[in-house]
């Protein structure tokens, strides 16, 4: 085994040997299976067959149309009402199926997995907890002293810890994907074909469910990596995991509000959270004027370099003192 690989191995052992890590996975598994069971009970499940899907879709559209009209009569909403838009989108999608003569898919494991992309915020949360603990815990346990008196530079130790955190995120992500597919398959079965219709740059398009699933997970990974790296930095700076978890989770939850609050300032587009959602450029509605994909990626890279550089400087230069 290579030396660096052994360091990673050490870190993963220290992580997975603890019960608290297993509890994380049990909670995740409970969430996924619970969501599958709930979806199964409450969603009556449309059942399209090759004979009836056209009439089914037309029936749905009629119902949606009526629903929208009733809603407008009752509440007299604005031009840009969320509920109206949602119904309209669904009708557009149904029309797309009809026009292009594509049979829509019944709900299945892949669709379920794709819908679970939101669970990535739970994965982010768990990774933040792990990232916040990896350095701070060694200080809390006092084992940092034994860790840093080996013939290995502090930079390499820090890198091994950082990579181990990312590895944890990857393992957890694969766990969510796999368990979603498995429990989706058990509750709903797998789709017959993987074709689906999505909105891209404001237009409906045909694509594969697998691509769609992976890309919706992929976009969220940006946020995961940024917040994880941030928590890692805070824990290196303050050597305190609770503080790092607190700040990182607070920012993660309030990120959008922060951006909203400062929206009309010129510098608002430089806020980290205005740039973490790269999907805003594929769906075609960027948060603020003048923002492009390149702009956001540049901002993200700058933040990332700052997080990593601060962590590295603080970890390699500072005294490991008793208090």
């Amino acid at each position: 085994m290579g030396k660096f690989f052994k360091l990673i191995y050490n870190e993963e052992i220290k992580l997975y040997i603890r019960k608290s890590t297993w509890i994380m996975y049990i909670v995740l598994a409970g969430l996924i299976i619970g969501i599958a069971a709930l979806t199964n009970t409450f969603d009556q499940g449309k059942n399209y067959t090759s004979d009836n899907w056209r009439t089914e879709l037309q029936k749905e559209n009629k119902a949606l149309q009526k629903d929208t009209e009733d809603y407008i009569k009752e509440t007299n909403p604005d031009e840009d009402d969320f509920y109206v838009n949602m119904n309209q989108e669904e009708m557009d999608r149904n029309n797309y199926y009809l026009e292009h003569d594509i049979q829509p898919q019944n709900y299945g494991a892949w669709q379920f997995t794709s819908d679970n992309a939101g669970l990535l915020s739970v994965v982010s949360l768990l990774t933040i907890i792990v990232a916040a603990g990896t350095v701070a815990n060694e200080f809390r346990w006092g084992t940092i002293k034994l860790l840093l008196i080996r013939p290995i530079s502090r930079s390499v130790i820090l890198l091994s810890k950082y990579v181990s955190v990312l590895l944890f995120a990857l393992i957890t992500l694969v766990f969510v994907l796999a368990l979603s597919l498995i429990s989706g398959g058990m509750f709903f079965g797998f789709e017959d074909s993987l074709q689906t219709v999505v909105t891209s740059h404001g237009e409906l398009q045909q694509t594969s469910l697998v691509t769609e699933t992976l890309s919706s997970y992929g976009y969220q990974i940006v946020n995961l990596i940024m917040m994880t790296t941030f928590a890692f930095m805070i824990s290196v700076l303050f050597r305190n995991s609770a503080l790092a978890i607190g700040i990182a989770i607070f920012l993660m939850l309030s990120g959008n509000s922060i951006v909203g609050f400062f929206q009309d300032r010129a510098w608002a587009k430089y806020i980290l959270f205005a740039n973490t959602d790269l999907q805003q450029y594929t769906t075609g509605s960027p948060l603020m004027e003048g923002m492009t994909m390149q702009f956001s990626i540049t901002v993200l890279i700058v933040y990332y370099i700052i997080f990593i550089a601060l962590s590295w400087i603080m970890f390699t230069k500072r005294d490991v003192a008793g208090f």
């Binding site: 040997i17 346990w141 006092g142 084992t143 034994l146």
Partner: peptide, 10 residues
């Protein structure tokens, strides 16, 4: 150095 601290869960 100071106390002989080890990982208590291992």
């Amino acid at each position: 150095v100071e106390n002989p601290e080890m990982y208590p869960f291992m």
